[in-house]
Design a protein around this nucleic acid. Structure first.
Lengths: 165, 165
DNA sequence: GCTGCAATTGAATTTCATTTTCAAGATGCC
DNA sequence: GGCATCTTGAAAATGAAATTCAATTGCAGC
């Protein structure tokens, strides 16, 4: 599944992995949890991947490194990563929770093709400003927003056309 | 659960119910399905309610009118209503699908309190324009978008504060 | 470097929203 | 009105996510 990203950093450097691991380790210590080989392995695999990963996909990838790491641990660790800001959930409204890594990334949004499920990332300043503006207006302390566009991508549009004629 | 709406029409008139019912009936005929008392009852109850209804909530309301209407029929009918544009799904990302009626309503968005679940509706032209703009840029034929803001509402903010001090 | 206790793990189980199944009942075209 | 077809709703199935629990592991304090 094609996924275009607007990312300045083409790959994740060793340095970034170390820094992210530090963030996780500090978070664990803060809330009285323990460092484990599993959590580190999951974080590393997660950072290395440039996709919007479902728990299932991440599980498969992690298993290539250590086949004994179970499903449950992936779920639990993704929540931990979200807690310390390293990951964030992306809901594409297909009933599956996806996560993307958030480390050193610009705020961005997604446009999803409803035919093939591929996605494009785009950036828009206005959306963040709107969050602030609306929050002020209705006296909410805003924490985040979601913005997704749904449609049919160029390729699927062409195929539909070819199919009909 | 408090829900502020930006709606020009304070209540649903008899006239509107009739028109909406017509839309449903025409849709049913078009796709070769049948009119039933259940479908009409569900549509009427749905239109009378100004909330973002979960299937469960709508089921409870409908049962007050006819206790024999089952869960499954609510699910199926909500899908039909969405198909003919009378309802649309609102995902608040709490694992429950909600629907709101779409008949004679302005395009709008939601800000949801993550503490108490209450929501405010707001209107923003920019978001629709952005959908068009981004779609053109990446050659998508866009169909819809979702935009939600999450935060803590004034009341919950006060309670948290009172609790701490 | 041990010890002990609390946190972690993962297989299995449970939960819960939603979907599917299917036999009995309703609808509407002829 | 007859009859094929759609609808209904209770029950069962599904599937993603959460929970349970016994065995294992991390690590703070000695």
């Amino acid at each position: 599944m094609l996924q275009k990203r607007i990312d300045d950093q083409p790959t994740i450097s060793r340095q970034m992995v170390r820094e992210a691991q530090d963030i996780l380790h500090r978070h664990l210590k803060r809330v009285g949890l323990k460092q484990t080989a599993q959590r580190d392995a999951i974080l590393r695999t997660f950072l290395e991947t440039r996709d919007h990963l479902s728990t299932d996909e991440l599980h498969r990838l992690v298993q290539k490194k250590d086949a004994r790491i179970g499903y449950t641990t992936i779920y639990r660790t993704l929540k931990l990563l979200a807690e310390c800001g390293l990951a964030s959930e992306v809901a594409f409204h297909d009933g599956i929770a996806r996560y993307e890594h958030q480390y050193n990334r610009r705020s961005h949004h997604h446009m999803v093709c409803t035919e093939c499920g591929s996605s494009v990332e785009f950036f828009s300043q206005e959306v963040g400003q709107l969050e602030q503006e609306i929050g002020r207006k209705y006296h909410y302390v805003t924490t985040r927003h979601t913005f997704q566009i749904y449609g049919v991508c160029e390729d699927c549009g062409k195929q539909d056309h070819a199919h009909r004629s």
